[in-house]
Design a protein around this nucleic acid. Sequence first.
RNA 1: GUCCCCUUCGUCUAGCCUGGUCCAGGACACUGGCCUUUCACGCCAGCGACACGGGUUCGAAUCCCGUAGGGGACGCCA
Length: 460
Amino acid sequence: MSVRVRFAPSNTGHLHIGNARTALFNYLYARSEGGTFILRIEDTDRERSRDEFTDSIVEAMNWLGMSPDEGPVFQTDRMDLYRQKVDQLLEEGKAYRCYCTPEELEAQREQAIAEGRKPKYSGEWRDRTDHPEDAPYTVRIKMPLEGTITIDDMVQGEVTVDVDELDDFIILRSDGTPTYNFVVVVDDASMEISHVIRGDDHLNNTFRQVPVYHALGATPPTFGHLPLIDGLSKRAGSASVQDYRDDGYLSEALVNYMSRLGWSHGDQEIFTPEELTDLFGFDSVGRSPSNFDRDKLNWVNSEWMKRLPADEVARRWVPFLEDRGFSVDADDSLTAVAELMRDRAATLVELSEVSTYFFSDDFEYDEAAVEKWMKAQNRPAIENLIERLAALDEWTSDAVGSVYREVGDEFDLGLGNLAQPTRISLTGSTSSPSVFDLVATFDRDEAIERMQRGLQLLEQ
RNA sequence: GUCCCCUUCGUCUAGCCUGGUCCAGGACACUGGCCUUUCACGCCAGCGACACGGGUUCGAAUCCCGUAGGGGACGCCA
């Protein structure tokens, strides 16, 4: 039997990390089994569903590299199917009309809780035939009256619940719209979903849904209930996938990090998307909830900053630099900057921060550094250095390096006396990559100009 | 209240099914050191956990029972 899985978010908000992780596990399972990954939008919430959220979810999935094979399928397009199934169950006597009012139900619920009983519908209309004329009604499904229901969950193992815990829940509201627990089953059955992989907040629902499959004459799929992610506060992770993209995270890193929330493969931490689809399996999915940890995400991202080809980093970096008002192209010179700076930044945003001096000479000189390193007595050496750099045949790190060594030898100066003033002139501070690389990564005219301007700082 | 799920370093986790090789391994973070023209990277080291209590056993993180704590569900929301 071929594997067909679906990710079924409601379009009432952007795709956040918790849902993205659920989508990812569905996607990875489909890929690892050669199956089909389907996107279904649960858009039956008239009040809150919005098309723009659908677009946002699709965009986020594309960015993460897990575009669906089928869909999006919209539930609102399938209302006729749902009503038809309700009618069918009614005719077959597997469902019935209930004329209780919401007020009556609410009163019963409160009383049950007050008496310490489980709030459950009494089932009073299950066998009644004295249906009032013209009164509003809901349709309820008949749950089995005795026995237990057991599912063999891919994550949780065997879980059994006594049907005594279940009541005849509403499948069609008095306004004629179907309810969630009914609709998911109709959809999953009709779309021939083989594996339902979702958050374990749905585990209890599953026991309500299994009898619906049976009533519909369908075989329940295999279930896999993933533990939820804790600590998804505004700050920590309930932000949208796009927020992470805008914060400068790489999609590979976010996917890598999310995959490790609840899944592992020995001691391995870094996985390429290809490795993930090869190695993913429910045998290695844990049952306990995990926490979203920004520090670890940052580390994974910093690893990916180093692993991606430098020109790819440059390409993805461009919009971040443009946001800061720098007009750049993803050309060789930007690639050179990315190559030089990338292991000093955990995100593309940080990369911009640590690299601004390449794009603007409008920076402050670090006063303490100037005080310490810009000594007037080194002027002749630095001037000589600038001259020789200007005359260099080739503008490479090695060539620049030999100039520094020659000047250092001739003036009998330690390299620091040349390197630090160079750094201050080019960047404003004394922390930067190796000076030779730094100088060579700059456009030569720009480097010379800044060094000449830096000469002014030598005045005592 | 009732039912379901969960519980190894601060965090993510390996180990648990098939008890001994685990005085519990890796990673992030943190601390210290090394490298070095600065900073960063990198490398090395350190810190740090089997929720608790019973049992089974020669032996338990691993098996059983209980307790506590956390999460979820119980809707004419999804």
